[in-house]
Design a protein around this nucleic acid. Structure first.
Lengths: 237, 237
DNA sequence: TTGTTAAGCGGAGGGTGCCTCCGTATCTTC
DNA sequence: GAAGATACGGAGGCACCCTCCGCTTAACAA
């Protein structure tokens, strides 16, 4: 937190980028230490296993032990549990995002959104710990750990915007809201048969999002004015 | 767990009923000890305060300390955290149930349901720890701690059934599902402004539950659980 | 009132987990 | 090979969970 003099380190998806501090004369960009890289990977691998087995509450010390590193090392790489979660499930989040990207070209925008949400349920089902990870990101409004949330919001937003622009869906629900609803539906995971329930509930919700036939034409005309990209307007209450 | 010889004790809502063991000759039914009754009440009072302040994760030892009893006493009265939750919020659950009872006489059944759910949000807002408590009851399928769940399911069911009977709502959503959706929506509590979001999301959901007069037949067909378009290849799991 | 006894009390204690701190080890660079 | 930066690891302090058991106390009978 206090190393103002050293080179800034920005963590991207899989890499670590080193940005030289231009004010500093001795700005030597060191290669990251091999053992550090190795250990980080080990911890990630171990966390994946441990979280899958023991749920999101699993002991971090267990993760460290499985990774064969000291607890201190774990904490250095991932200062909070959330950080670790996010790193573990980052790939999954990205896959979901990419799926949204692909679905943008689907014919029926409402169906595209539905299919995306259904895929989300499947993801959650496969990767056990993911709900917890994402829910954490959604819940704790902390800016720092919101990579997943931001990424998924964007994905949701793009699909939602299309449906709204097509006059198929009401415009007063934000992507964040939709995402929260999604997580809410998945909240009941680990009950037997929760998956079917979640899908059913999501379908109901999507029906609720639909613009009623009576007002459809009006909404369509209205939506055509603005750019399709724009997120849903901010609602007041 | 091993006191086979003593009188059986069944814990009802607010009272403790003593059932004499008929096989036993010396089946004297003792009045509950005054200090036990007093302590139980104290713990409940303390728990209410502590959970409100510190959330559902608050330390049970803190509760015991505030109640002025030993930790052992707390555990004797409430063997699990869940037990304590349920006892604390039992009154609230009952109030909600009673509200549902009253709303059964409302003219518009859909609006009655909506109002009830909105009241639920308000309850959750007031009694901070309640979501957690109820979510626990909903989530952990444990039969023993399902008082709240059962009670609320019944309340939801009565309102839902009325709306369905009136032909206003689709019939393929169970009270349990609705309840789960409700808790899902409230899952995001403790974010600023979550209440407005929850209400909005609930409204969307209710709209989704509605049978549209214009498209009634279509909506009904669509309400089938499986995919609407495909021949539904019976997905397992 | 007093004695008996079950019921209840409390908190020590053993266990687990969180997170920090800092002496030591190892790696990169020159 | 030396120097210095960087990372390692785990001990240690803290908080909490939950159980167990010797002691206390209230209810009841005589």
């Amino acid at each position: 937190m206090l190393s103002c003099a050293g080179p800034t380190r920005v963590q991207s998806n899989q890499f670590v980028i080193y940005i030289a501090d231009m004010d500093d004369h001795t700005d030597q960009i060191r290669k990251p230490r091999a053992d550090a890289v190795r250990n980080r990977e080990r911890v990630l691998e171990a966390a994946k296993v441990v979280f899958s087995a023991g749920g999101p509450e699993a002991s971090l010390e267990a993760v460290a032990k499985r990774a064969g590193v000291g607890i201190g090392t774990l904490y250095r790489h991932f200062p909070t549990r959330e950080d670790l979660f996010e790193a573990v499930y980052r790939r999954e989040v990205e896959q979901l995002s990419e799926l949204a990207e692909q679905l943008r070209n689907a014919k029926d925008p409402v169906d595209a959104l539905r299919r995306w949400l259904h895929s989300g349920v499947e993801f959650v089902a496969t990767k056990k710990g993911m709900v917890a990870a994402l829910a954490l990101a959604v819940q704790s409004g902390s800016e720092l750990h919101a990579f997943s949330f931001e990424r998924l919001t964007k994905a949701t937003g793009s699909l939602l915007a299309r449906a709204v622009a097509a006059g198929e869906m009401r415009a007063d629900i934000s992507p964040e809201d939709l995402l929260r609803a999604f997580f809410g539906m998945c909240y009941i995971h680990d009950q037997p048969g929760w998956q079917a329930t979640a899908l059913r509930l999501l379908d109901v919700f999507i029906d609720g999002l639909r613009v009623q036939p009576a007002t459809k034409a009006k909404a369509k005309a209205k939506a055509r004015v603005g750019k399709p990209e724009k997120p849903a307007p901010k609602r007041k209450r």
